[in-house]
């Protein structure tokens, strides 16, 4: 039977672990709300943006733009993997990393060169370890992504795409479905699918005669990169909220598990204590009986 003092030690240590996981759970809960607020405040811009894009697309018809055109050959694919800087958030990162690596592997099997842009320390470390040196890495932005971060990621792939160095860009991130659920998703970033633009145009109920300054096609030319930026920004925000959601869930089950463990340990402790007492009594009784005999 385990030593009483050892059991006591384990109980104390599990209790302090529970204290920590419980605090982390509460911190994550508070952060979820803030991250959700940020998603909300990004919405008006995104909606207005789609409206403008729809209007412009309607008037330019099937206008061509480097970002709308698919390259003839698919030799270089870039995957933007949006992970977190910190762990202890369940399957949050492993889902993203697994999906990203799978895309890389598939593209390589198809004969294309595939590279990774790693967002978050977890992705950077993972791909380095796997011998896939990221084309670019971004750290310390996962917690509180700003539009500037999104812009710098977006402009990097846009420049590469326009220059013909990149033929397709995908972004892998956790979508924040609700507080309890995060869904890993893969979105095509580049080329921008013409359907997207057309759908935005179709969604408008009214199509008044717009005046364009300077012209519809030049507005479109400026607008498409901004559209990509908005998509990246949105993905980063979704991922930030998801990270906190995933952490809250992971920490909640850790807290629950710690509680269970403490119950079991306390039971073992009591049983051991009782056993020890019984033992002592038996010894005393046995001793007394031995004395009587003699």
């Amino acid at each position: 039977m385990a030593n009483l003092r050892d059991i006591q030690k384990r109980i104390t240590s599990t209790q302090s672990t529970r204290q920590i996981t419980r605090t982390m759970e509460m911190v994550a809960t508070a952060k979820i709300r803030r991250a959700q607020d940020r998603i909300e405040s990004a919405r008006p811009y995104a909606l207005a943006m789609m409206e403008v894009l729809g209007n412009v697309a309607h008037f330019t018809g099937g206008a061509s733009h480097p970002l709308l055109e698919e390259h003839e050959t698919r030799t270089k694919v870039v995957v933007i993997a949006v992970s977190s800087d910190r762990g202890l958030c369940g399957a949050f990162n492993s889902n993203i990393l697994r999906l990203s690596e799978q895309i890389v592997r598939e593209e390589r099997e198809r004969g294309a060169d595939a590279g990774v842009i790693a967002v978050g320390k977890k992705a950077i470390a993972y791909f380095r370890y796997r011998g896939i040196e990221p084309l670019a890495s971004y750290r310390d932005i996962a917690d509180k992504p700003s539009i500037l971060d999104a812009r710098s990621i977006a402009s990097r792939v846009i420049d590469g795409y326009v220059a013909g160095e990149i033929d397709a860009v995908k972004i892998v991130f956790n979508r924040f479905k609700n507080v309890a659920d995060q869904v890993p998703e893969i979105h095509d970033l580049l080329p921008i699918r013409p359907e997207v633009v057309r759908a935005a145009a179709d969604e408008l109920k009214v199509n008044p005669e717009y005046v364009f300054e300077p012209s519809a096609s030049s507005v479109l030319r400026l607008l498409l990169p901004t559209y990509v930026e908005t998509l990246v920004y949105r993905s980063l925000l979704e991922s930030a909220a998801s990270e906190q959601g995933a952490r809250r869930k992971a920490m909640k089950s850790a807290t629950d598990n710690a509680g269970e463990m403490i119950t079991t340990l306390t039971r073992t402790y009591n049983r051991a204590r009782q056993g020890a007492i019984t033992n002592e009594i038996a010894e005393i009784v046995g001793g007394a009986a031995a004395l009587e005999k003699s």
Binding site: P208, E209, V211, F212, E213, A216, V219
Partner: peptide, 11 residues
């Protein structure tokens, strides 16, 4: 832009 302005999109 004043009220009743024609629909416009500009950069």
């Amino acid at each position: 832009v004043l009220p009743l302005h024609a629909p416009l999109v500009g950069a």
